[in-house]
Amino acid sequence: MESYNAELEGRELMERARNGDNAAFSLLYDRHAQDIFRYAYFRVRNVEEAEDIMQTVFMKAFEALPRFQDQGKSPLAFLFTIARNTVINQWRKKKEVPVHDLFEVQPQLAGVVDNVVSAAITKEMMQSALATAEMLTPDQREVIMLKFMHELDNKEIAVVLEKSEEAVRQLQSRGLRTMRDHMKKDYDIL
């Protein structure tokens, strides 16, 4: 089994995985498992369900590897597209519409805090930000989450959501403004 350094480019990893290199696929898992879990968790609000979705996503990704080359997506956008479709299919199967309750974050790791509003950023504010995101339209919320929590760029988000980059920019701008308006009521510092 070949070992890889962390800098190995995502596309190259995908290409190697596509050619049957299990070590490359394993490294893709190491890199993106947490991202996919977080995405699933924000959509289904259930840890066990989110873990199941994450497993399904990687299994589907493995099966779809041969088709990856033609899609021209980054590995992360490729995985998020599968994750999004998996979540939607799950909702369809259960015939459930997600209920957006006040968000409850499971604090397992402490957030890293630095400049901008550094001193004011507390766990409570972070939870409040996540709860406020629930007030957005589904499209705005998804763009905001993919952008700031998963660090996808506009081009990647456009691919995942099958929208234009301009539409993504507008959804992001309006979503952030709505969040800021809601949060400003509770936090003067904003």
Binding site: R38, M54, Q106, I121, K123
Partner: peptide, 27 residues
Amino acid sequence: SLFGVAKLLTSSRDMISLREGSFDRIK
């Protein structure tokens, strides 16, 4: 304030993480 909201979201990402053991089990 808008940058602040963006920063809050970016910072909160690490508050959600896989349970211990789940990462390896699913892998």
